[in-house]
Write a protein that binds this DNA or RNA. Structure first.
Lengths: 150, 150
DNA sequence: CACTTATAGTTGTTTAAACAACTAAATTAG
DNA sequence: CTAATTTAGTTGTTTAAACAACTATAAGTG
């Protein structure tokens, strides 16, 4: 029987944990003038150049408006550029700039170090279990959501 | 050796999971005109009436400005009232109203059901482990944060 | 082909988080 | 007791998330 009360609520506890980890990462990358969310988008473009926004949104776990705005800020900072599609003129291919590559390659190890530092309190097995359980929860929540929106 | 890449990043995966779960809860309580965050604050006041904002903030895992604003919205909706402290006139004691009690008591089982539905993909042991690991991570992240802000 | 529907992206609005700067009251120290 | 410091709360600003409404192009159907 699962315990009741906010202190045993997955959503509540996860929210706090997520915000704290995010905050730590943020303080460590603030010299790059990038937020963790902007980073997650830049990371995807570094990983695969030239994707259209729809694919970036999917890979980053963000919706379309959020992706549009994050890309706008990344473009304003000179980290990415948009090129309109030739075949499909509704879409934009997003390319990373030299500055973007440089920032991404400097931030990647910082993020990894944050993970190592924070998850130092977990064993490797616990860490792997955690990732797998979180993925299960996401999928389950998304599936319930879809059902309930009819 | 832990895997690298955003798809194995605790922060990234947790963010997606958190947002989806939150979204599901939100759709289920939208008829109450309350958000999950407002709920988490109202819950604390339902739990212990008359606390000052500082204590509510602490229990809800929010900072002072966020708490101020959420309490403002709860007050505007008629769910709580503020009473200035007699001994300490800097602080406000926050009390729940009848409407607040009613909403809280109706939402509590809904939240519990969301948890049961979403975490149906986990065993009871996994659920408990998850909560405990999330708490460990919060504490660790908070401790690192404090250090690094000097 | 024309017409309907789907898709890619943008814009507007509301809520919350993080941070800094601030007011006012309380506490501490000289 | 006065002056400095701490504490409780508020306000302003920026970023992101969720949602709805919108434009423009593409694809599917009669």
């Amino acid at each position: 029987m699962r315990q009741q009360g906010l202190d045993h609520s997955l959503g509540f506890v996860m929210g706090i944990s997520y915000r704290r980890m995010n905050q730590l990462f943020m303080t460590r990358i603030k010299s790059f003038d990038l937020t963790p969310e902007q980073w997650s988008v830049l990371y995807r473009i570094r990983e695969q150049d030239g994707m259209i926004q729809k694919d970036i949104a999917e890979k980053s776990g963000k919706d379309k408006p959020t992706t549009t705005r994050i890309l706008d800020s990344l473009e304003a900072k000179g980290y990415v550029t948009k090129k309109i599609g030739k075949n499909d003129r509704r879409s934009y291919h997003v390319h990373i700039t030299e500055a973007g590559i440089q920032a991404a390659d400097e931030i990647a190890p910082i993020e990894y170090q944050v993970l190592r530092d924070v998850s130092g309190v977990l064993t490797d097995e616990e860490y792997a279990l955690m990732i797998s359980m979180l993925n299960k929860l996401s999928i389950q929540a998304a599936s319930l959501l879809e059902q309930e929106k009819e």
